[in-house]
Nucleic acid binder design. Sequence first.
DNA 1: GTAAGGATGCGCT
DNA 2: GCGCATCCTTACG
Length: 204
Amino acid sequence: MTAPVPLPRAFYARPTLTVARDLLGMQLCRQLPAELGGELLRARIVETEAYDGPDDTACHGAKGLTPRTRTLFGPPGHAYVYLIYGMYDLFNIVTDRTDYPAGVLIRAVEPLQGETAMRRQRPNARHHQLSNGPGKLTRALAISRQHNDHDLTLGQTLWISQDPDFTPTHISCGPRIGIDYADDAHRLAPWRCWLSHNPWVSRP
DNA sequence: GTAAGGATGCGCT
DNA sequence: GCGCATCCTTACG
């Protein structure tokens, strides 16, 4: 079986909400390092959130260019991984264009290959608790801040590919989660997308 | 089943 | 110091 082909940069170099929607159903691929077992992991992206530009008060980029947000201002198709609540690494994908801070947060995935290896990273997780949240999936797939700014178009270590056997049939949208601090318009904007009725989504 | 609170590090005021 | 794009455990019914 040949390795899944990474999506090209042109896929990410589009409006953030479009990318967030189109990422649903794609395969997140992770080649584990030898010390973690060396398996190729694959998981279906089932939930995303768009964070779009300097005017989006929920987007880290609204704070301006800082050492932390530098990746968000960089070229599309790179990973933006940051630490939240002192404990969890959250995985985003930089979108749109260079110098415009925007990205898509991956909030939940459905295991397709290597689930045993994923559960090794989260031995206490039952059933879909394995990867039905942004902090859970990074741990299951061993994604951390060392992947910040990683180029996802290279097909090495961490990348995203199309699934030839899967096409989303019904997509739902709603407000983003955990951004109560944002202005009303941004707090209520339906920029969270998920595969309807998928049991791996973080919240119904 | 739901609700509340603690864990924990770092970027920013 | 404060607050955070979260998760887990504990308490209660």
